[in-house]
């Protein structure tokens, strides 16, 4: 309950902070922090244009995509407080519910029969496929470390004691940040601001969406950001009491957003045909975490 509210709250200003960071670093005045939300609200009020090629899939896909994100957020705990949904192995459910949403967003791009949108869909499918093993190895290692298999129990019993565990925390944060960037199609994997359809991934998939649907897709991606921010925050909250946990949460989200803003200001997008390898390399970082966990448990003797 608490986590759900906090994530929704964070999602309201998350993208705003990214854009603000980018405008500050590039010396522009830039829009206010709530501009992205204002855009979404404006889109909710707008009418829509549908392509004649599209079918029912195109109509239902944004709703399913949005529903999948809401379901995924319900699973995220907040420190010692459970999310709406919590059971053993819930992170598998988390990954697969998000997968269901992604499935629909991909086929809705294919539904338009456009040459560009198919390209974006193909890339999205490929990149998120490679991000999957990294997530599962990471969660498997955390499960091995804590002996639990649900988000809530893993995070509640995750406490940092030795040096190795700090390294693990840093690595896990790195992996989650990268997964968040892949899943939200941000730099350095995808450039949302590129002007050329050929070089886009996510943006090109939603070229034909408009009005309420587009609003849902955009807000969905803000929520997704805040959701990954919450997961990262959970790595550090542990069983901290509320008066500590909430500031930690807010700080983490804030730092996460600023990091993304800085990344987008100072890096260039990876070469598209090497993207898959970069993402696959995440799995090896996850494996490093697994190795660290084995070290901590003293199994490597």
């Amino acid at each position: 309950m608490l986590s759900f509210l906090l994530i929704v709250l964070a999602s309201l200003f998350f993208t705003g902070i990214i854009i603000r960071t980018k405008s500050i670093t590039s010396g522009r005045k830039g829009p206010g922090i709530f501009q992205p939300m204002k855009d979404v609200i404006r889109l909710f009020k707008k009418g829509a244009v549908y392509s004649k090629t599209t079918s029912i899939i195109f109509q239902v896909a944004p709703s399913i995509y949005f529903a999948s994100i809401i379901m995924a957020i319900c699973i995220i705990p907040f420190g010692q407080y459970k999310g709406f949904i919590s059971f053993e192995g819930d992170f598998v459910f988390f990954a697969y519910v998000l997968g269901a949403g992604k499935f629909f967003s991909i086929i809705s791009a294919l539904d338009t029969g456009s040459s560009f949108e198919g390209m974006g869909a193909s890339r999205e499918a490929l990149f998120s496929m490679f991000a999957e093993p990294a997530f599962f190895i990471l969660m498997g290692s955390l499960a091995l470390l804590t002996g639990h298999t649900s988000f809530h129990e893993i995070f509640a019993s995750l406490h940092f004691g030795s040096y190795i565990s700090y390294i693990l925390g840093v690595l896990a944060t790195f992996v989650f940040v990268m997964i968040a960037l892949v899943e939200n199609s941000r730099m350095p994997f995808d450039d949302p601001n590129t002007h050329l359809e050929l070089t886009m991934v996510h943006e090109v998939m939603i070229l034909d969406n408009s009005g309420f649907d587009l609003g849902m897709i955009l807000y969905g991606s803000y929520l997704k950001f805040a959701m990954y921010g919450a997961i990262i925050a959970n790595l550090f909250i542990g069983i901290a009491p509320l008066y500590l946990a909430i500031p930690i949460f807010i700080c983490t989200q804030f730092l996460f957003a600023i990091t993304i803003g800085l990344l987008e200001s100072f890096t260039a997008r990876f070469r598209m045909n090497h993207n898959a390898q970069y993402i696959l390399a995440l799995s090896s970082v996850s494996l490093l975490i697994f190795l660290g966990v084995l070290l901590m448990l003293g199994q490597l003797n």
Binding site: T53, Y96, I106, L110, S122, M129, E132, F135, F136
Partner: peptide, 25 residues
């Protein structure tokens, strides 16, 4: 664990491709 996840990911690619190419557009 990772293999099963990878299989799930590729099967998403395979079936979005198959469904999209046959039925959509």
């Amino acid at each position: 664990f990772a293999g099963l996840a990878l299989v799930g990911g590729v099967s998403m690619l395979a079936f979005t491709k198959c469904f999209g190419t046959i039925f959509l557009g």
